[in-house]
Nucleic acid binder design. Structure first.
Lengths: 171, 171
DNA sequence: ATTCTTTGCTTCGACTGTTGAAATATATGG
DNA sequence: CCATATATTTCAACAGTCGAAGCAAAGAAT
């Protein structure tokens, strides 16, 4: 493709990459809002529901960790979902301090209408890329992710689909 | 399904790319929070301040459009910044319905301590990439951005630095 | 076992972000 | 002048967020 020859100084590339990153951030944010509203939930509530769904059963502590918010916040969010009958609090057998949050049948139903926030539009486009382009893209994204989250984060665990090893135990 | 190559089916790549995207989103969000707190502002307030700063003078309407929130929200945010003496409301001369929001000297001072949310950590890493890697990365990011924001968005206008070459006057 | 400490969760109070609807003021076009 | 459209603010209601305080259970120390 392009020769980058004359007018593409490094500085411009940095800016361009930041702009693209912003567009990604912004598009995702807006899309997540629309989508959540579409299923009658707020973005935060939908996120909780999705995380719980993928993991089958999560403690508020873990939820807080994965979402990067406090336990108090999680309590509030779970309360809302419970009030709508989408999740249940299930006291742990092994440690009675813990509660396990699980998705109800109703909750699963609701999720069926709400694919992962990113998917709809992105998935289609991604699928149409040539094989090598997909590979290239994944590599680049992972590189950026590495550059950004570097240190603190335990980050990614819960996501779209079968990425958590096949092992799915009983419910 | 057909067997493609055996260990990298398309489906895996999609998942991987989504995970990476999530990591990017998450890292950015957390980082923005920390950073804003570091300068004694909330993320939303800092975003307003940055946008106003780059554009010199913005109407609430435009601000709302660029941030993807309602005018009412912008009013509230600007109120907070005004209360802290970081921006001023300057009635427009040409159309007295409009107000222009401008950054005060104090606001500029505050911004000096708060580089763009993404920059700090990312910029350093980006700078250390080889030339071709940077180019590759920009291309990939732009591609993803295109796939995500596709339609609705007038999105990027206000950003880091001299990226506004091609046109787009404010309305 | 009795106490002390830690851990997991919830409750409480306060604040920010967010919005839709209504109000206000100014344009703009008959 | 009047009607309508536009830019902004005000208002009332809610969601997300947190720190601090409370509580109950687990773990540790003696």
């Amino acid at each position: 493709m392009h020769l980058w020859s004359m007018d593409t100084r490094p500085r411009d590339r940095l800016d361009e990459s930041l702009i693209a990153l912003r567009r990604i951030l912004r598009a995702t944010e807006l899309y997540a809002r629309d989508l959540a509203r579409g299923v009658g939930l707020t973005p935060a509530q939908l996120r909780v529901l999705q995380i719980v769904d993928k993991a089958d059963s999560v403690t508020p502590k873990a939820l807080a960790g994965q979402m990067g918010v406090s336990q108090a916040t999680v309590t509030a969010l779970v309360d809302k979902l419970v009030a709508q009958g989408l999740v249940r609090r299930l006291p742990s057998e092994t440690d009675r301090r813990q509660t396990n949050v699980v998705v109800t049948a109703q909750g699963h139903g609701r999720l069926r209408d709400a694919p992962d926030p990113l998917q709809q539009r992105y998935v289609r486009a991604f699928g149409q890329l040539a094989d090598w382009e997909q590979a290239q893209l994944v590599a680049s994204l992972e590189r950026v992710a590495d550059m950004l989250d570097a240190q603190d984060i335990d980050a990614s665990p819960v996501l779209t689909a079968g990425e958590l090893h096949g092992g799915r135990q009983s419910e």
